[in-house]
């Protein structure tokens, strides 16, 4: 396989990045840049929009247009931007806290309006930038710095939320499945209207350590073992489902 020249989209002079060893954000960014290279976008016609949090620093490592707004509001900024510049291809790279907690309202309304944007949610199951607190997407019973005895709240399925809000394309995978990740990103970008890809990604520094999953490689295999295809997931009983994440395409 010929690897397309993704480095032209990378601000190489800004490296090394700030992400921890074993973080999945680099895998996500590379997957996105590879897809951009495959689709051969010109720098002037694309924009990477991010919010606040670990993944949102991705904007510092791209050579093309980037917008980094305030925490949770990325999709509201992009709503105005897309009205002014409808031809601009916009990719949002936001975290689980950004999209499911502080910015959930904007996510729902962007999907309802069918805003033409591809939203990539880097779900590392906690707030990494602030030291590993639980987010709405953190699984129940997880240990985090604000749930030392286990998270007592239920977690949220952001994909199903996007589905009922009217998203055109919804899929979930993990950085472990790199080929699938690129495929979903490519499909999301190629789709007109609102599309969302939730990407399960390791945070060995906090989530992995607190929950005794292990280091970077153990976390990657943990995601392999914890994810099941959507079809199989739907055949499980409710109790069993609680131990797994589904992966696959929910809406297309």
């Amino acid at each position: 396989m010929v690897i397309p020249d993704y480095k032209k989209y990378l601000a190489v002079e800004r490296l090394p990045h700030i992400w921890c060893a074993g973080c999945g954000n680099g895998i996500i960014l590379k997957a996105l840049l590879l897809v951009l290279a495959e689709l051969n976008f010109r720098p002037g016609e694309i924009l990477l929009a991010t919010g606040i949090g670990c993944i949102s620093r991705a904007g510092d490592y791209v050579s093309f247009q980037r917008f980094q707004g305030t925490h949770g509001r990325t999709l509201a900024f992009v709503t105005g931007l897309k009205i002014a510049r409808p031809a601009l291809k916009v990719f949002c790279l936001i975290g689980d806290g950004d999209c499911a907690a502080i910015g959930m309202g904007h996510l729902i309304h962007a999907a309802r309006r069918n805003l033409d944007v591809a939203v990539l949610v880097a779900n590392n199951l906690n707030y990494g930038m602030t030291g590993g607190q639980f987010s709405p997407l953190t699984p129940n019973k997880s240990l985090t710095s604000t749930s030392r005895a286990g998270k007592i709240e239920a977690s949220l399925d952001i994909c199903r939320l996007a589905e009922v809000a009217g998203a055109n394309y919804v899929a979930r995978t993990s950085v472990f499945y790199h080929g699938e990740l690129r495929k979903y990103i490519r499909e999301a970008i190629s789709k007109t209207g609102f599309s969302l890809v939730e990407i399960l990604t390791p945070c060995p520094t906090y989530y992995g350590r607190y929950n005794k999953i292990g280091g970077p490689d153990e976390m990657l295999t943990w995601f392999r073992d914890k994810t099941v295809p959507l079809k199989k997931y739907l055949q499980m009983d409710k109790q069993e489902q609680k131990d797994f994440f589904w992966r696959g395409k929910l809406v297309e």
């Binding site: 105005g80 931007l81 002014a84 904007h106 309304h109």
Partner: peptide, 26 residues
């Protein structure tokens, strides 16, 4: 021009900023 009714005032000013960056007086 364009009018959009946002979900709250936080979204309103965000959309205004986005549109302004996109080249519209907002």
């Amino acid at each position: 021009g364009f009018y959009i009714q946002m979900e709250d005032e936080i979204g309103s000013i965000a959309a205004v900023i986005g549109a302004s960056l996109g080249g519209l007086r907002a």
